[in-house]
């Protein structure tokens, strides 16, 4: 008896239509300004905050999140050390994660957060609040340019994050803070 794999592949081979060409996707240029990125991000519930320089990060974080007790970060000495072996119950208590991102997309307010920058895969969604640190020079206009510039392809795991976790599943009323981070600030330097 043939396997499901063989049967599916054979059926796909037998039933597929005549080959059609794979199109080349043009590079649609567009606006990659910080202004555009900030406007779009604000429209989806996120926020941009300016950093004078990366060395200001820690003081800015404490100023913007005075209430945050357990802060995880790879960019300054954190109040809670997280790595990929951190147990779930510790992760569950994180108030704020401050993580670097590789690029930002002006058309939709998304930033690329690869696994290597996450400390733990669950950290960006399990943390109550999320701050992502972006070099202004790494802004691109559209998703086409973003995918072309992913430093390490998709990596083992990586996500575009556009704003805080949200839902409109109850009568289409927008609620920020569904399961993931309740707020998202992109700190731009």
């Amino acid at each position: 008896m043939s396997t499901a794999r063989d049967r599916i592949l054979a059926a796909a081979r037998a039933n597929k239509p005549a080959e059609t060409p794979l199109p080349t996707v043009p590079d649609f240029w567009g606006d990659n300004s910080l202004e555009r990125f900030s406007t779009v991000l604000a429209s989806i519930g996120g926020e941009v905050a300016q950093l004078a320089s990366l060395s200001d990060l820690e003081t800015t974080v404490h100023k913007l999140w005075p209430e945050a007790k357990l802060i995880a970060s790879s960019l300054f000495t954190p109040t809670l050390r997280i790595d990929q072996h951190t147990p779930t119950d510790v992760l569950a208590d994180v108030d704020l994660a401050v993580l670097p991102v590789e690029l930002g997309v002006a058309e939709n307010g998304a930033v690329w957060l690869p696994e290597a920058n996450m400390l733990h895969r669950a950290l960006p969604t399990v943390t109550q609040h999320l701050a992502l640190v972006l070099d202004e020079r790494c802004l691109v206009a559209t998703m086409h340019q973003a995918y072309a510039r992913l430093p390490d392809g998709p990596g083992g795991y990586g996500m575009f994050v556009a704003g805080p976790s949200k839902t409109a599943d109850i009568e289409q009323s927008l609620v920020i803070g569904a399961h993931g981070a309740r707020s998202l600030v992109v700190l731009v330097y």
Partner: peptide, 21 residues
């Protein structure tokens, strides 16, 4: 990713577009 969320709900993109490799 430019088409999906705009067509679905009018968002510019979904909040999380996650790549599991």
């Amino acid at each position: 990713t430019r088409l999906l969320a705009r067509s679905a709900t009018g968002q510019p993109v979904t909040t999380y577009t996650s790549h599991y490799t």
